[in-house]
Design a protein around this nucleic acid. Structure first.
Lengths: 195, 195
DNA sequence: CTAAACTTTCAATAGTTCCTGAAAGACATA
DNA sequence: TATGTCTTTCAGGAACTATTGAAAGTTTAG
């Protein structure tokens, strides 16, 4: 595949460290994934480190990683520990070697579902609980005339809608986790009451 | 919030003023929703303020909200502006009144889909671009012998997998937005290559 | 058992983000 | 246009998070 190249041999690349262009590209990918993870509520570095490992043909040691993503070894240790807790990386001790080597968990499905199970479900559940508590307190409020009957009806209806939403959320997560198709239209019906 | 953490100390409320019990419950709901929003990448206050409005029978003014959520009026103004940008809140000027009143957008479906369109799709798209750039740079790298042929094959494969994932992501979002059912199994096949 | 090679923990600090009060800006009314 | 009311902007400060270097802890080889 003889592709015409833009860079010519005279480009001595003085400023950039002795890295190749590939490492530059790798960093960009790692950053992109890192940003993605950030929106998912994780620290950016988690995504970056995982990506570097995922793209590395060989397992990497803490020192290697620290250099590649520009972090102190201690921070890297912390990050790797966290990734380990999520099952996103595995330690592998090579026979003759004394230091730890790390590999990326390659089944992204496993990773995603674990996060959903451990984090999302709990979160939705907690919201549901708060809603139930609120509904209960609403009755007390009525007794103490904090709200007019009309207001009460309104609030009850709104609370009910939110409560339904948490149910939908749990169902959707459940479907997803068990590989069943997610019925988007059902979600829509609940989340868009008047259409 | 990256770690599977238990309830956050920051959510602890100092001391309930002489408000009614209902307002206490309302705050709890608002906090729960706020936390949910935080995991979705928004500031906590956005969720809290929206919730208070959603549960309020009547539109509320900046000052009311500031008091209920315990925020300065200026911060509230900022928050409301942001909520407005996301279409989560509508201003309504009452006839005789001089000040602005706010109401919650009640179609949660609208809100969710807007976020997906404006934020998620772009994010996935950017990741895809980074992957394509990386793939291109890989060819350069080969010419300069930064990677052995074997390493090259490996990296190419992994990049390819990530690229597929971005496609799946786009498809899933697309399905969701247009109300079609999401085929979870297809996702799984891509995200879990060996099962 | 001891030393060497790594890893992990932790207290200090650097860096960010968030929030506030004061002041400027808008708007509606007279 | 002047006035009073409300909203928005903004710089400074408070609160929180992230990152580091040093020290303590582990593990393995000899």
């Amino acid at each position: 595949m003889p592709t015409p190249t833009t860079t010519d041999a005279r480009d001595a690349r003085p400023a950039a460290p002795a890295e190749g262009r590939w490492h530059e590209a790798e960093r960009q990918v790692a950053d992109a994934v890192g940003r993605l993870m950030e929106f998912w509520g994780f620290r950016r570095h988690l995504g970056r480190v995982w990506t570097v490992l995922y793209l590395s043909p060989a397992p990497l040691a803490v020192a290697d990683l620290a250099e590649r993503v520009q972090l102190s070894q201690s921070a890297m240790s912390l990050t790797l520990g966290e990734l380990g807790n999520w099952g996103a990386v595995k330690k592998t001790r090579l026979p003759g070697e004394r230091r730890d080597y790390f590999q990326a968990e390659t089944s992204i499905w496993k990773l995603v579902t674990r996060v959903m199970r451990q984090r999302e479900l709990r979160l939705v559940g907690e919201t549901a609980e708060a809603l139930d508590r609120a509904e209960a307190l609403l009755d007390e409020a009525r007794k103490q005339d904090e709200l007019s009957p009309k207001e009460l009806r309104f609030v009850r209806k709104r609370l009910g809608r939110l409560r339904l939403l948490t149910n939908v959320g749990e169902r959707v997560l459940g479907s997803f986790l068990s590989g069943r198709a997610v019925d988007v239209d059902a979600v829509r019906k609940i989340a868009e009451p008047r259409a």
